[in-house]
């Protein structure tokens, strides 16, 4: 009940925020503009529209997760709206969880709107849609949940700008974790190699959530892989949420 009250409020605050609509507008422009790239590559236009649509869902979703997520707790501390909330009979972790669930609901809405509009666009262009397209969008949503949990942790610890930079770095490195593992031979035996190996195991591999090429080409995906990715995403999100709750628990407000 208390978690849902906070989640509902977070959702309401976000959907009443103009920034969300500006981001959605940009996402729509990039999805509908994808046809222009399709003209360049003859016969590949539907594939390109699908590919760019999913990339747009991922990018604009992550922008919402970063910009809203990193300011979720910080803004409440800064504006002192937290005072009257934390002095209510609720556990602090309920507040953190409520903020997370609220933003997750916003992301679910944003992802759903973008997925459905891009799907309609593909159909209007005369393309066909397979289940893997929607599965790819769902895994992007799972990735956004993970990024949001990390953003929320940062929001409990740092200012929104610093938090946004760190989360964006996680997003970039998370899509290129292979680089940390496959180092050139001159790194052999160095401290840098050890550190990068640690980074490889600690930073979540966000490429796991990427089914763009499968979706563009209509290739089926092994269900076991999907289950594994779901467990992977939920585990990382849970760890980040636990850390966020722990960071907020003892915080002086």
């Amino acid at each position: 009940m208390r978690v849902l009250a906070i989640a509902h409020n977070t959702f309401r605050e976000s959907v009443r925020d103009k920034v969300l609509y500006v981001l959605l507008l940009f996402a729509a422009l990039s999805i509908f503009g994808a046809k222009a790239l399709g003209w360049i590559s003859v016969g590949q236009d539907i594939k390109i529209v699908k590919d760019i649509s999913l990339a747009s869902i991922s990018l604009f979703g992550v922008l919402v997760a970063i910009f809203v997520g990193t300011s979720l707790v910080y803004k409440e501390m800064d504006k002192r709206t937290l005072y009257t909330i934390i002095s209510q009979p609720l556990h602090r972790y309920e507040f953190v969880l409520g903020k997370y669930v609220g933003l997750a609901a916003v992301l679910a809405l944003v992802t759903a709107v973008m997925t459905l509009s891009s799907a309609c666009y593909v159909l209007v262009l005369g393309g066909s849609l397979e289940a893997v397209y929607f599965l790819a969008a769902f895994l992007i949503f799972m990735k956004l949940l993970l990024v949001t949990a990390f953003a929320l942790l940062l929001s409990s610890l740092s200012s929104p700008i610093l938090g946004a930079i760190i989360v964006f770095c996680l997003y970039l490195f998370g899509h290129a974790t292979g680089v940390f593992k496959d180092l050139p031979p001159q790194f052999e035996g160095t401290f840098a190699k050890q550190m990068l190996e640690v980074a490889y195991y600690v930073i979540p591999n966000l490429s796991n959530f990427d089914l763009r090429s499968e979706a563009a080409n209509g290739v089926a995906v092994n269900p076991l892989f999907v289950v594994w990715v779901l467990i992977y995403g939920v585990s990382y999100s849970a760890v980040f949420l636990l850390l966020a709750a722990a960071a907020f628990q003892e915080k002086d407000l």
Binding site: R12, E13, R80, T81, Y83, T84, P89, L90
Partner: peptide, 20 residues
Amino acid sequence: RESRRLLGYLPEQPYFYEFL
């Protein structure tokens, strides 16, 4: 948490969600 059930608090210059 139980003690906070017994308490009503008005902060100095109270801030609430502006959109509500």
